[in-house]
């Protein structure tokens, strides 16, 4: 069973990801709606993977990314960005940061599961 932590301020996305992952046999999903809660849960849960929204209210996902990278407990956890942007330059920038991958919103439930499985394999 793989544990995934989703950090996203959008209630709909939290519901969707939580529902999709918990319905799958091999995932457990936890969610956080802001940076503070996200970092706290990442430290205490040590998930196998973090799904991180690019825009978290007033916080930028990239800053949260750096924050998670700067902490010893969360440094090794692969981070996948959830992005609403379709501009290649935005996505390139995120990948250059060292993110494990990107998932563009909107996504198909099966696509989410398949992508996460491939990152965790």
């Amino acid at each position: 069973m793989k544990t995934v932590l989703l950090i996203d301020d959008d209630e709909d996305i939290r519901f969707i990801v939580d529902t999709i992952l918990n319905a799958a046999e091999d995932f457990t999903c936890h969610t956080a709606s802001n940076r503070q809660e996200g970092v706290r849960l990442a430290q205490s849960l040590r998930p196998d993977l973090i799904l991180l929204d690019v825009v978290l209210g007033t916080d930028r996902g990239e800053e949260v990314y750096q924050d998670l990278r700067s902490r010893e407990e969360t440094r090794p956890i692969p981070i996948v960005f959830l992005t609403g942007s379709t501009r290649p330059e935005d996505n390139d920038r995120l990948l250059r940061l060292g993110a494990a991958g990107l998932i563009a919103k909107p996504f198909q439930p099966d696509h989410l599961i398949d992508t996460l499985r491939s990152y965790l394999a």
């Binding site: 709909d12 996305i13 909107p106």
Partner: peptide, 17 residues
């Protein structure tokens, strides 16, 4: 709108996206 764009299609309503 940005939020609906991301969630609408995921919920199964591409027209909303």
């Amino acid at each position: 709108a940005h939020s609906l764009k991301g969630s609408g299609g995921t919920y199964g309503f591409p027209s909303v996206t």
